[in-house]
């Protein structure tokens, strides 16, 4: 099969995930004297999900696909999803750095670097990104820290 229907692939993956979740319901602790066991509700909704996914799979097989997953060069694919991938990646790094740098510094770095990667990199833009990241993150951090009394994560390094 050279061409794959995107819905078919999604349906199969979701069916596998549904099966995995259903298998997990067998590990739910039995609570004595309970009228409805804790595993009943997840099984009910997972059964409903299973039926819906089967219909989805069936539909995807019988209807002519609108979009086909064709072999795209990796570069084209990366260009298409450049900004979301950058944001997800940077947000992931922000979370990783949080225990070391704390919310304030990690936040400023996240905003500055992400804006620079997505936007322009000329001198004027870099200054703008720096001002925005320090002002916006510092301002919001101060509101929560001093205004609302929330203890923000502090870093082990700073």
């Amino acid at each position: 099969m050279k061409r794959l229907n995107r819905d078919t692939v999604t349906a199969v993956l979701l069916l596998l995930f549904c099966g995995l979740l259903f298998q997990q319901t067998f590990f739910v602790r039995k609570v004595p004297f309970s009228i409805m066991g804790s595993e009943v509700w997840p099984r009910v909704v997972l059964s409903a999900l299973f039926i819906l996914l089967l219909i989805y799979l069936f539909k995807s097989l019988i209807t002519p696909p609108k979009d086909i997953i064709e072999k795209r060069p990796l570069k084209v694919w990366l260009d298409m999803y450049r900004n979301p991938l950058l944001c997800f990646g940077m947000f992931f790094l922000f979370l990783i750095s949080l225990p070391y740098f704390g919310m304030l510094i990690s936040g400023i770095l996240f905003v500055f670097i992400t804006q620079t990667l997505i936007g322009s990199r000329d001198k004027r833009s870099l200054i703008l990104h720096a001002i925005v990241s320090v002002g916006a993150v510092g301002g919001m951090w101060a509101i929560f820290r001093f205004g609302l009394g929330v203890v923000m994560p502090a870093g082990s390094l700073f």
Partner: peptide, 9 residues
Amino acid sequence: VVILLYCAI
């Protein structure tokens, strides 16, 4: 990007 960080805070 600023709002993404506000979401986190």
